[in-house]
Amino acid sequence: MNEPASLSTIEDSAFVELRIPPKAEWAAVARLTVAAVASRLDFSLDEIDDIKLAVAEACTHAIGRSNGDHPVELIFEAQPDSIIVTVRDFSTSPHLESVADELDENHVGGLGLFIIQSLMDDVDFHVDAGTGGELTMAKRVGGTF
């Protein structure tokens, strides 16, 4: 059987989508999935561990925001030299509206977002009144951390 082609030889992006129930036991599925996607790129094992943790933190954050009422949607975009992960919670509950706000709160949720910011190259989080919270993070192969 031939080895699967490395994404580093593929010019186009590849998308993988996952929707999980907003329950703690499903967070592990999200981090295992992103590890599988990231392993298709040329990330080191340490970088894949970083991405797993960042995605798990984002899922924990989304699950907390959803209050169990909304699914959590994850979109993994594998590019030749980076991975972009979007985590949506579909919760319109009033909440802190930015990573900076969360960090100011100094609670466990803030700690999770601090970890995401530390491990990933780019992070953005915003809440839309109609569609809920969306956290997008990117990591480049051989990136900054």
Partner: peptide, 9 residues
């Protein structure tokens, strides 16, 4: 093998 912010908490 793995710990996240909830474990740290």
């Amino acid at each position: 093998r793995y710990i996240d912010s909830t474990g740290l908490g």
